[in-house]
Design a protein around this nucleic acid. Structure first.
Lengths: 334, 334
DNA sequence: GAATTAAAGTAAAACGTTTTACTAAATTCA
DNA sequence: TGAATTTAGTAAAACGTTTTACTTTAATTC
């Protein structure tokens, strides 16, 4: 069974292709097609199950009703949750999402942008990494809406939605200090993206503001794509070699590894050892004791991103760029 | 800056569009294009950064190098992990993945299939639900490769890859019984898909084979899309109203809710109360005590799925359908 | 040195839409 | 009543490729 084309419908209805096209696209009235013809064509379309070929449509119109979503890693729950929310909201407004993970690899990210470009996606939602500034700028000169989220890129002048990582991190450390902690460690990653460096800066500033000297030996930067076993031994080394009474983990997966270490070396979280994890995870609430976290407002981020995209897509003129920074919430548990 | 087309390249190189096309598609040799021309064109393409318009290409060739992946819910870690693996493997072989979540909603699932169809994806990987048999059969008559995974659909004659849910469930119950457990409950979902009913059947059969009478009062079916709070109170009711010494949770998210209940009602997992969760989750290893789980071989499933797809795509003739059932692993922790 | 074959390349159709510019008939207007 | 306008619809170009069938020139064969 060959798939139907608009031509088949036209032939069956005894009208021109143009007429069918007008009807499909709701322009029948404006193009003064008679009620009778409209009904006939619609009936035939309905009965035959004809669906317009989106590829042909895209080729002709230059847009696709597809939004490209580029994230770090779909298997990370922060991203998969936000992807789900974004997909859902986009879907309700008639857009589809294609997503793909960069794995923090510059080449892959560039390739993804190219592939989205050659597939003519209408807009881009990107959780970026350093090194793709130029590629993003090309999209902007092409007049494609681009929204960065989670992390910003200094040399790119576009829209951004993200949480206030600096303050969330600052408050986390402050809460440690209020509990009387003195030797506060930071476990972070080595990738050089704004959202991570902000967490680092917040850590440092909070210490300084409270008269605690910052020490490099209390900060460990874990390489991004490394095996978990290596991560675990780095964290173990940190905890065993230093006197530490509190740790801020800069991502949820680092915290997971950290908790495994605690289990292994039998170190208890409690009055004299505290932990906060950046980005919530199902495991944290469940953990005994449950783990305090910095919660990003996923719903709000997703909603803001989609709204920005849609207003850009529907406006003829280039809109003013917006930078939306949403406060993150420190959830102290137990 | 207008984006470049093959025509621009042809003009610049002073050759015909055809020639450029041959070169792009590696048919230059076979079509006897001279070395000199090949080099010139390739240089121009390289310098200009020209990338073929995939939309136009798809329209002409009828395929897209895109594989559609339809899953239940991308924010569930089982699916997001497998999506990542599939994406990765497909990517390495030159295919892109578009994915979308059905949320176990028949209408959405049908719409997704239609939308993939009108976008001319080359093949489909589907974790199906009841009610879309007809739609899948239409894909098959269109001669599109379709691989079902995680769960099979009785009335659809196509390829399937999944874990041996029945035996995994059976073994879980058996392991409870060997520990001397007598009152074994099952917390499952109400969706009527094969992978879930198999888990149920395994539960029932294991009880019967070991001379334990099955009781409806020990099985609770949680509605799929319900708020977690409701789930929690259902599970709480089960645990508090019955004498129960072991529970099998049929999905990881149900187990998570279950663990929250245990925490709330202060029930300890230990010698006289055991738990097994179907599908692993980061929270389980970390939990105190850590939680035994049925682990599906994600890597193997993903690899099998991709291999099937690729062999179908590269073969001219319709291949024999394959049903691959992979054993799942019961991981007893603590 | 004419006929044949090979080499190097091209023109044009086709994929399935949307959209612009057009036509023919019917209606309104003055 | 004839011109102007409205109604109802259509032909054909365009989007950017791939691919088939073709042409022209050069090389080879006998």
């Amino acid at each position: 069974m060959k798939t139907l084309s608009i031509k088949d419908i036209a032939v069956q209805a005894n009208v021109s292709i143009t007429t069918v096209s007008f009807i499909i696209n709701g322009k029948a009235k404006e193009k003064s097609i008679s009620e009778a013809v409209i009904e006939k064509v619609e009936r035939i379309i309905e009965e035959s199950g004809y669906k317009p070929n989106q590829i042909a449509r895209s080729l002709r119109t230059g847009n696709s009703n597809i939004i490209g979503l580029i994230i770090e890693d779909i298997s990370n729950s922060f991203f998969s949750r936000i992807a789900r929310l974004i997909e859902d909201k986009a879907y309700k407004r008639g857009y589809k999402i294609i997503y793909s993970s960069t794995e923090n690899n510059v080449d892959k990210a560039k390739e993804l942008i190219n592939m989205f470009k050659s597939r003519k996606v209408d807009a881009y939602i990107i959780s970026p990494i350093k090194g793709i500034e130029e590629d993003i700028n090309m999209l902007l000169t092409d007049n494609k809406p681009v929204i960065l989220f989670d992390r910003n890129l200094p040399n790119v002048d576009t829209n951004y939605v993200g949480a206030d990582h600096f303050n969330a991190s600052y408050q986390s450390i402050e809460s440690f200090i209020k509990q009387g902690k003195k030797n506060i460690a930071l476990v972070t990653t080595d990738i050089d993206v704004q959202q991570i460096t902000e967490r680092y800066d917040g850590y440092k500033k909070a210490l300084e503001d409270h008269g605690i000297t910052y020490g490099d030996n209390l900060v460990v930067k874990i390489p991004f794509n490394q095996e978990e076993a290596a991560t675990i031994s780095q964290i173990k080394a940190l905890l065993q070699s230093q006197k530490i009474d509190a740790v801020l983990f800069a991502t949820n997966y680092l915290a997971i590894s950290g908790l495994k270490v605690l289990k292994q070396i039998n170190k208890q979280i409690g009055d004299d050892f505290a932990v906060i994890a950046y980005d919530d995870h199902e495991a944290f609430e469940l953990h005994t004791p449950s783990i305090s976290t910095v919660q990003q407002p996923l719903e709000e981020i997703a909603e803001t991103v989609i709204k920005m995209i849609l207003s850009q897509l529907s406006s003829k003129t280039k809109l003013e760029n917006q930078q939306v920074i949403i406060p993150a919430k420190l959830i102290i548990r137990d």
